[in-house]
Amino acid sequence: MLNQQECEQLLLEHGIKPTANRIVIVKTLADAENPMSLTELEYKILSIDKSGVFRALTLFREHHLVHVIEDGGDGVRYELCRSHSDHEHDDDQHVHFYCERCHRTFCISDVPIPAVQLPQGYQLHSINYMAKGICPDCQS
């Protein structure tokens, strides 16, 4: 959980001007237990319309403040990137797990993404490592 000052600092570290709406969106993502879809963010933040949330997420993505995760279904989810700059390298990449029963996406932070050696000529920008199965809550 981040307070308002920490949200502002994170935005500045990523080269983004802190505005009231952007701070609210960063705080909502920071407080979330799991990566969130645009619709979930919309319902959580009733004071900002869908286009405002989407514009902020697009800006956050351009400045490497959010990870965009294909959730294993047919949607996209967003999570706050904990790297400390707007450079292309994210220092917090981790595995995600998609539950095929409850359709939630979980961050599995203690499982590193394996190194990928691409053939010569390919330039890697990001990796989306998604495991699918049944989460512990749905197994019980």
Rank of each mutant, 00 (worst) to 15 (best):
E40F: 04
E40A: 14
L41W: 03
E42I: 09
E42Y: 05
K44T: 15
K44F: 02
K44E: 12
I45H: 05
I45P: 04
L46R: 15
L46E: 12
I48Q: 05
I48C: 05
D49M: 02
K50G: 01
K50Q: 08
K50D: 01
S51P: 03
G52T: 14
G52F: 03
F54T: 15
F54A: 14
R55E: 14
A56C: 09
A56Q: 07
L57R: 05
L57H: 02
L59A: 10
R61I: 01
E62V: 04
E62R: 13
E62N: 06
H63E: 04
H64D: 09
H64P: 05
H64Q: 14
V66K: 01
V66Y: 03
V66Q: 03
H67Y: 06
H67S: 03
V68M: 12
I69Y: 10
I69T: 01
I69F: 11
I69A: 07
I69S: 01
I69V: 14
G72L: 02
G73E: 10
D74Q: 08
G75D: 13
G75A: 03
G75K: 07
V76P: 00
L80P: 00
S83L: 00
S83P: 01
D86P: 02
H87R: 15
E88V: 10
E88I: 14
H89G: 01
H89V: 01
D90C: 15
D90H: 13
D91R: 11
Q93R: 07
H94K: 05
V95A: 11
Y98C: 08
Y98N: 09
Y98V: 00
Y98K: 07
C99W: 01
C99M: 00
E100D: 10
E100C: 08
R101I: 13
R101S: 11
C102D: 07
C102P: 05
H103D: 11
R104L: 13
T105A: 11
T105N: 13
F106T: 03
I108S: 05
I108Y: 06
S109C: 04
D110Q: 04
D110S: 09
P112F: 05
P112G: 00
P112I: 01
P112T: 10
P114T: 07
P114N: 07
A115Q: 12
V116Y: 06
V116E: 13
V116R: 11
Q117T: 14
Q117M: 12
Q117K: 01
Q117L: 13
Q120Y: 03
G121W: 04
Y122W: 13
Q123S: 10
L124R: 10
L124G: 03
L124F: 01
H125R: 07
H125V: 08
H125M: 03
S126W: 10
S126T: 08
S126N: 05
N128Y: 10
N128Q: 15
Y129L: 10
M130F: 03
M130L: 15
A131N: 06
A131K: 07
K132S: 14
G133Q: 02
I134N: 09
C135F: 12
D137T: 00
Q139T: 09
